[in-house]
Design a protein around this nucleic acid. Sequence first.
DNA 1: CTCCTATTAGTAACCATTATCATTATTAAC
DNA 2: GTTAATAATGATAATGGTTACTAATAGGAG
Lengths: 133, 133
Amino acid sequence: MTAQRRAILEELRGTDAHPSATELYEMVRRRLPRISLGTVYRNLEIMSEEGLALKLEHAGAECRFDGNVAPHSHVRCLGCGRISDVPMDIPRELVAGAAKASGYRIAGCRLEFDGWCRKCGRKRRGRCGADGA
Amino acid sequence: MTAQRRAILEELRGTDAHPSATELYEMVRRRLPRISLGTVYRNLEIMSEEGLALKLEHAGAECRFDGNVAPHSHVRCLGCGRISDVPMDIPRELVAGAAKASGYRIAGCRLEFDGWCRKCGRKRRGRCGADGA
DNA sequence: CTCCTATTAGTAACCATTATCATTATTAAC
DNA sequence: GTTAATAATGATAATGGTTACTAATAGGAG
């Protein structure tokens, strides 16, 4: 394992901020100033395949990465864009229901939430629901 | 409403194939050969905001569009890429659980399935689970 | 150390999507 | 029907995240 790959993995494991490839690139660059963005992408891809990292392809947004490999869902804050973990299992019945409703053999599923984090929610006190403001 | 927007909406409503912007562009082009791709994108965006169309931002894939505006989930076939409807509600408890687990005020959520459609599943008889083959 | 293979840095290419802008269509008022 | 104000169009350029390419370099087995 090269120094670059090790550094990327360590930085990823040292945060719960779900960094994008570019953010990770900036983080690793403090240690390895000559690393290239392509190297970060390549290694993240490889480590995702190997199960060392999780590639979060949240709909309509750039990819983010997670050093926490255990299956879990995520919420994205509509205010600040932050992504947080949602330690929650997807009920088996839900997957079974989807299989029945669609006729597909279900192999995987993602549950993605959008919402307002505590900080952003405080600024919006009184308002509620799914408005876009 | 312009002829272009009307044509886009009619084509979208006339299919359940969840076309991408480019596919829709090809479809509409048969009627309006001089329409531009930008116009298709612009109108799909506008109609999504107006609630006339649904923009499906399935993780890690190009956007697809749906003329069926009722809330529902989707499965993508890992074999052929086809997207099908999953007429299923997301349980309230799931959203409530996510709110509790994350501290966010949840505004929306997406449930995305990957799997094998009947046709592709037949070719894979015997195998099961979430392998990538 | 030496050869072989994998990986790197740097850069160019890709592709879906947006933005720009001069021209053209639509609408509402007369 | 004309006109003036406004909105939408087509064509193309720009953007941004990601992938592909390549010559140079690093790692590791023997």
